[in-house]
Design a protein around this nucleic acid. Structure first.
Lengths: 178, 178
DNA sequence: TAAACAAGTTGCCTTATGGCAATTTAAAGT
DNA sequence: ACTTTAAATTGCCATAAGGCAACTTGTTTA
């Protein structure tokens, strides 16, 4: 993408800072913005049938974050997006997003690319649940996103890996012993 | 959608019949068509790192099936789509799909809706791996897609549920005993 | 800095699932 | 109909992960 285009696009984004613990998107409320994450970590989670929090995804800079279902259809979200650390973001609202989509071909292309990446991501995740042990999933997360291992509380990582905090604690112990 | 629109759209689709065992989309080859499944069952699977087949999804009439990544980007697929039973489909090729997308607003809307449904589907699936036992996942499949339980071989259903054929066989036995 | 609370660890035991081998049942091919 | 092959079942034992309770460590906050 050319610099001019990038500059043009950047004028539709607004720089913002949020603090740890903030819910940028709330279950039941319609998502008003999408975010480019400049620094920090955000997690997406839902409450399952038994009342437990299930972390479905982490976002860490420089990821782009939005709730497809809520944002593009402007209907209530079914998930929560919570800041694990303080974050600096560039946000874009619905109208500006629509404007960019309709007027900047590169933006459309980029949007489609994001969708592709997202789809690939969830597909890989499903496969990882089939054919990897919890320990392997943990080691992969460690390899690909060490910042998450470092900054996210154990019980949240456990809920992302699909195991209990007890099991993750034991896995950590075992890994330390090489 | 109005009847005229539906008729118009239908002219871009071609009626075809394929036999059990056919691979309509092959790993490494670019997907040329998307399919509306009129009757029959198709599964999508990949080969994992250890050489095992992992079934990631079933399609049963009246589902719409396509490989987003391969079809829309016209690049090689990473998955296989195999007919579990004989199938009757309505297929549409890439050029016609593009034409419809550009000229029929309802078609675009429908495309976005499909995407939404797909995303919701994979999200639910990820959650089911977190917080349901294999037996619960099996019972849900039974409830929502009895035709799959009936017509798909046990070892394939097992690979979809993320367990071995041995475990699924035992789960079936246990369920029969109420 | 004390007190309160959350996060993480660990021992003990239970349960779900895996993996192999032997066997039975069902399906396909000639 | 017979033979061959694939699919499904089952006994036996191994392993991964869960769940509870007690305990330790680390973080807030009054």
């Amino acid at each position: 993408m050319s610099d001019e285009k990038a500059d043009l696009i950047s004028t539709y984004f607004k720089n913002e800072t949020f603090h740890k613990g903030t819910l940028v998107i709330k279950e039941g409320k319609t998502s008003k913005k999408s975010y480019f994450l400049e620094s920090g970590i955000i997690r997406c989670y839902i409450i399952d049938l038994n009342g437990y929090e299930v972390t479905t995804r982490f976002f860490s800079a420089p990821d782009f974050l939005n709730d497809y279902l809520s944002f593009f259809d402007q209907k209530p979200s079914e998930e929560n997006y919570e800041l694990i650390t303080d974050c600096v973001v560039y946000s874009i609202n619905y109208d500006n997003m629509q404007h960019c989509f309709h007027n900047i071909p590169e933006f459309r292309e980029w949007g489609r690319m994001l969708l592709t990446l997202n789809y690939t991501y969830v597909n890989k995740r499903i496969i990882s649940f089939h054919k990897e042990t919890a320990q392997e999933r943990y080691l992969n997360l460690m390899k690909n996103n060490p910042e998450i291992i470092e900054k996210v509380p154990l019980h949240i990582i456990a809920s992302y890996l699909g195991i209990t905090k007890y099991s993750l604690s034991r896995i950590r112990k075992e890994i330390e012993m090489f």
